[in-house]
C-alpha cells in the first residue's frame, strides 16, 4: 500500500477516477461503453505517439520531430494508396510506413550520437527539415479518396453492439492495434535487458556506459522505436480521417509530450512507465471529452489541460523534493 502511494501513477489514476465521477454526475452519457470505445479509437493516435515518446524520455532524450516523421510516412503511403492502392494490403501499408519511420528515427539517433548535439536541438532541426522538404515537394496538397478496402478496414469492429437509439458501436480494430503496441512496449521495458538498460542510461549515462551498456545501440533503438510508432501512428491517422494533410500533425508534439510527462515520465530521463503513459493519455482524453459533455464551451479546454498538467507534475515534483530532504545524496560526476 505504501509502495503504491509513492508512485506517481497512483495519483494520476486517482485524478482519472475523480474526474470521471464528476463528469458522469453531470452527464451520465460519459460513463458508457459507447463513449469509452469512441474515446479509445480517437485517442489511439495520441496513445501510439505517446508510447514512442515514453521510450525516448526514459533514455534521457526527447524527440520533437516525430510529427514530421509521421507526416512523411503518412504522405508516402497516401501517394501509394492513391496510385497502386489495389495492389496493397493493410500489412504492407503498416510495413512501409513503419520502415520509413524507423529510417528517419535512426537518422535522428545517428546525428545525436555522432555529433553530440542535444536531442531537442537535433529533433527541432530534423522536424523542420523533414516537414519542410515534404511541403516543398508536395506543395502541401491534401490527399483523399483512398481505395475502399482502406476505408473498410478503418471501420472494422472486433465486435459490434447497439446503443438504445440503435446506433452501432464497438471495439475498433484501430484500438486493438494500439493495445497490441502497449503490451509489446510494456514487455520490452519491464522484462528485457534492453528495457532495463534504457532506465539505467536515462538515470545516469556515465554509469550505464561503465556498466557496459551499448549507448549508441540504445540511442538508435529508442529513436527508431519512436520513428516506428510515428509510422504506425501515421497509418492510424490516415485510417481515422481518410485524408492525409501535411499540416495536420505537425504542431501537436507538445500535447503528446505533455501526456507522457503527465503520466510520470521525467524530462531528465530514467523514469516513466507504460501504465503511467496510458493514464496520462487517458486523463487528457477524458478532460477534452468531458468538458464538452459537461456543456463547457470548447474555449476552456486548453486552460483546463494546462492546469491539470501543472498541478499533477507539480504535486509529483514536490513529493520528490520532500523525500529528497530525508536522504543524503552524494553526487559524483
Amino acid at each position: 500500500m505504501k509502495k503504491l502511494l509513492n508512485r506517481h501513477e497512483t495519483y494520476v489514476f486517482i485524478a482519472v477516477v475523480v474526474f470521471s465521477i464528476i463528469i458522469t454526475i453531470i452527464n451520465p452519457n460519459f460513463f458508457t461503453l459507447e463513449n469509452l470505445f469512441d474515446l479509445l479509437k480517437s485517442y489511439s493516435l495520441m496513445g501510439t505517439f505517446a508510447i514512442g515518446m515514453l521510450f525516448v524520455l526514459i533514455s534521457g532524450g526527447i524527440d520533437i520531430s516525430f510529427t514530421a516523421i509521421a507526416t512523411v510516412a503518412g504522405y508516402t503511403i497516401a501517394v501509394l494508396l492513391l496510385n497502386v492502392g489495389d495492389h496493397l494490403n493493410i500489412y504492407m501499408v503498416f510495413l512501409i510506413a513503419g520502415s520509413i519511420g524507423i529510417a528517419l528515427g535512426f537518422l535522428n539517433a545517428v546525428i545525436i550520437h555522432v555529433f553530440r548535439i542535444p536531442s531537442i536541438i537535433t529533433t527541432i532541426a530534423t522536424l523542420n527539415i523533414f516537414y519542410g522538404l515534404l511541403t516543398v515537394i508536395t506543395k502541401g496538397k491534401w490527399l483523399y479518396g483512398f481505395p475502399t478496402w482502406f476505408g473498410d478496414f478503418a471501420t472494422t469492429r472486433v465486435f459490434t453492439l447497439y446503443s438504445a437509439h440503435g446506433n452501432p458501436y464497438g471495439l475498433s480494430i484501430i484500438t486493438v492495434i494500439w493495445i497490441g503496441l502497449v503490451f509489446i512496449s510494456w514487455f520490452l521495458l519491464r522484462f528485457t535487458i534492453l528495457g532495463r538498460s534504457l532506465y539505467a542510461m536515462g538515470g545516469n549515462v556515465n554509469s550505464a556506459k561503465r556498466a557496459g551498456f551499448n549507448i549508441f545501440g540504445n540511442t538508435a533503438f529508442v529513436y527508431s522505436y519512436m520513428g516506428l510508432m510515428a509510422g504506425i501512428g501515421s497509418v492510424i491517422q490516415a485510417l481515422l480521417v481518410q485524408t492525409v494533410a501535411p499540416n495536420s500533425l505537425v504542431g501537436k508534439e507538445m500535447d503528446v509530450i505533455a501526456a507522457v510527462v503527465l503520466g510520470g515520465a521525467s524530462l531528465t530521463g530514467g523514469t516513466g512507465s507504460v501504465i503511467g503513459t496510458i493514464l496520462g493519455v487517458t486523463l487528457i482524453a477524458i478532460m477534452g471529452n468531458g468538458l464538452t459533455l459537461m456543456h463547457v464551451p470548447a474555449l476552456w479546454y486548453k486552460v483546463v489541460i494546462g492546469l491539470v498538467i501543472l498541478i499533477s507534475v507539480g504535486v509529483s515534483a514536490y513529493r520528490r523534493k520532500m523525500s529528497a530532504h530525508k536522504r543524503v545524496i552524494i553526487e559524483n560526476d
Binding site: F30, S42, L45, N289
Partner: peptide
C-alpha cells in the same frame, strides 16, 4: 478534420 470528428462524437453524446 480529426478534431471536428471528435467534437461531433462528443456533441452527439452531450446533446442527444
Amino acid at each position: 478534420q480529426e478534431l471536428a470528428r471528435q467534437k461531433t462524437l462528443e456533441l452527439i453524446k452531450a446533446y442527444p
